[in-house]
């Protein structure tokens, strides 16, 4: 009796695991009857930040609004999950596959499978590093190099006319990801023109608050003088702010902080003067994506690269925009 009950318990637990693994993947093959809904398979990076959550919400809401059936899969920041999800989309014969790649490289095989199955692929938010650009029809998203440049431009302007050395520490995103590579490159390109800007330390904070705080705390001890912090996303900046405060310094004053993303928590910190400038990286691209998916399905020519509209927020602008900020 007790053995049976135990077996049932195990079976129950296994079912939980299976459903957890297969979330968003189920549903079987798409209905191909006359007048069927457009089916889009979307593989998201994960839910690693408020930005990502806003991005997910935007895509889900826009799909509903546009009458498109969305098969959503969360890769939990693992490339193998994402490859699995894309393969399952191919098997289910969805009309369009869209995804935000977790990392830049290693996509050729699975994208070729999609191409062979004649399913168009749209990249959102992050690009892939592949020599064969026929593997996807369009890339919709922010220009991370541009974001890095905007961050660099602000810094150059801020220190215009001063000749002292500016010591910069950098909190990089997840190693190997497009935003980390590009935001670093764009920023580096702008500041290398002037020898007074020196990046004295640069480490990955994995785009998370906890890591941002941990790494910044080590920076504060290892580096005798830090003038500027450049964080590749808001969560790391928010973690670093706590570290700076614990070191008895004033974030935004003693150490100027440049961040990227523009999430609500960062805007709150900006309105308190703790972040100096935030380069926006707009996650609300659901409508654009659904339009694009319809056009691609209808066989229309679409541009290979579509950029989302983005700005740069200073402290005053952030304070003004805070009450209406969605994410």
């Amino acid at each position: 009796m007790s053995k049976k009950a135990a077996a049932a318990l195990v079976a129950g637990a296994m079912v939980t695991v299976l459903t957890a693994c297969g979330s968003g993947g189920g549903g079987g093959s798409a209905d191909k009857g006359p007048g069927h809904k457009l089916v889009v398979g979307f593989s998201q990076v994960g839910a690693e930040s408020g930005w990502r959550t806003a991005n997910t919400k935007s895509i889900q809401e826009s799909a509903k609004k546009a009458g498109i059936e969305l098969k959503f899969s969360d890769a939990q920041q693992k490339q193998e999950n994402q490859i699995k999800a894309i393969r399952s989309f191919i098997q289910q014969k969805v009309d369009v596959i869209a995804f935000s790649p977790v990392v830049e490289s290693g996509w050729d095989t699975v994208l070729k499978e999609a191409k062979d199955a004649k399913i168009p692929v749209i990249l959102t938010d992050r690009a892939v590093d592949s020599k064969d650009d026929s593997l996807y029809v369009s890339f919709l998203g922010s220009d991370f190099v541009e974001e890095g440049k905007k961050a660099g431009d602000w810094l150059v302007k801020e220190y215009q006319g001063k000749s002292d050395v500016v010591n910069i520490v950098e909190l990089q995103g997840t190693t190997g990801s497009a935003p980390a590579n590009d935001r670093k490159a764009g920023f580096g390109d702008v500041i290398k023109a002037d020898a007074k800007f020196k990046v004295v330390a640069s480490q990955t904070g994995d785009f998370t608050r906890a890591k941002g705080k941990e790494v910044m705390q080590a920076f504060l001890k290892a580096q005798p003088k830090i003038d500027v912090l450049y964080a590749h996303n808001d969560d790391m900046a928010l973690g670093a702010i706590q570290a700076i405060e614990e070191a008895g310094k004033k974030p935004g004053t003693d150490i100027k902080i440049i961040s990227v993303d523009g999430v609500k928590d960062a805007f709150t910190a900006m309105s308190q003067g703790k972040i100096n400038v935030d380069v926006e990286c707009n996650p609300i691209l659901g409508d654009q994506l659904m339009d694009l998916a319809k056009k691609v399905k209808a066989g229309e020519q679409v541009p290979k690269r579509i950029k989302t509209e983005e700005g740069v927020f200073t402290q005053d602008q952030a304070a003004a925009a805070l009450p209406t900020r969605q994410y």
Partner: peptide, 15 residues
């Protein structure tokens, strides 16, 4: 080990 990586500045790619 983690703190060492941050303080002596080992590049993230080789951490």
């Amino acid at each position: 080990l983690s703190t060492t990586v941050y303080t002596i500045g080992i590049p993230p790619e080789t951490t």
